[in-house]
Design a protein around this nucleic acid. Structure first.
Length: 290
DNA sequence: TCTTCTGGCTTCTTGCGTGG
DNA sequence: CCACGCAAGAAGCCAGAAGA
């Protein structure tokens, strides 16, 4: 149920929270309390927007809130903007994961495993199918640099998935941004981080290969899509758009594709295709590595 | 009063034709 | 062949109308 008064109430509480003016080290107790209060208010804020939709996701909301509190930098505009954007993303990601879990008959399948299954399918297509399973497995193990045991498990997963219907390969493109985003954002341990860097370097490489005229446009789009996932956005990558960063700093909003089309005097459709083409190039680049 | 239907709005994509 | 624009389509979201 939508209750405007509640929504406004929590908005206010969030905006007026002392959390970000507290010194974490000097006042640890006050900071912790403010943090807990903030998380509670964010949760209630979301419930005031749509109770049925968000109520089951208390755990995800708490995690997102915690992550946002840790990474928020007040130079980046309103905290609520920051959180809302992050939550939107997390919610989509969670929904998608639920969908995948259903596909794999309720088994929980991690993002990495899904990727591995895709690789498996591709490898299997390349290697002749007449091989006996065990031979095939050892060849795949070699090709994918994984233990034979893992290959066997993957094979089982693929069987389950094949029975339930459609192949997943057609989703590849749509999910590319998602994969990039998830890689950069959600996983925080060391290996994943390196994986994320690897991907971003690829993005950079493909970006460098574009014609000069296309670069500013692609730069704005990529920056918009990845902005929230980057930890220190300004440095290192040539594809990061300063203009988009500036807009975020000033207004706390990111441009839409339509805005960008207007900015460059191009049709929306044109931008859409430019992005699509770029993603295809990126995909090719990623596949080459295997 | 509570639910669900409906139409409008926004954003992005796709089909098709044009011109360099 | 490639980049582009137009117009229609697809999908998500929301608020107010209509119905129970």
């Amino acid at each position: 149920m939508y209750k405007r008064a509640d929504k406004e109430k929590y908005e206010k509480l969030i905006q007026e929270s002392p959390l970000f003016s507290l010194d974490k080290k000097a006042e640890p107790v006050a900071f912790r309390n403010a943090r807990l209060k903030m998380i509670e208010n964010l949760y209630l804020y979301l419930l005031s927007i749509n109770k049925e939709k968000y109520e089951p996701y208390g755990c995800e909301i708490t995690e997102t809130a915690n992550r946002c509190i840790d990474t928020y930098d007040s130079a980046r505009g309103e905290f609520l903007n920051f959180f809302n954007y992050a939550w939107k993303k997390e919610f989509k990601y969670t929904k998608n994961r639920e969908r995948l879990a259903e596909k794999y008959r309720g088994l929980h399948v991690s993002e990495n495993t899904v990727r591995a299954v895709r690789k498996y399918i591709k490898c299997a297509e390349k290697i002749e199918k007449k091989d006996k399973p065990e031979e095939l497995y050892s060849k795949l193990a070699e090709a994918m640099e994984l233990p034979v045991k893992t290959i066997r498990e993957l094979a089982e997963l693929v069987d389950i998935q094949v029975e339930t219907g459609n192949s997943i390969s057609d989703e590849d493109e749509e999910e590319l941004w998602g994969h990039i985003a998830n890689n950069v954002n959600i996983e925080r341990d060391f290996e994943e981080k390196e994986g994320a860097e690897n991907i971003l370097n690829k993005v950079d490489k493909v970006f460098q290969g574009l014609r000069a005229k296309q670069q500013p446009i692609i730069s704005d789009v990529i920056t918009t899509k990845l902005w929230m996932c980057l930890e220190e956005p300004e440095q290192r990558y040539s594809f990061i758009s300063k203009e988009v960063a500036e807009e975020w700093n000033k207004k706390g909003t990111l441009p839409t594709q339509r805005d960008l089309a207007k900015k460059y005097g191009r049709d929306e459709a044109s931008i859409s295709r430019t992005v699509k083409t770029f993603l295809q190039k990126l995909k090719k680049e990623m596949e080459q590595e295997r």
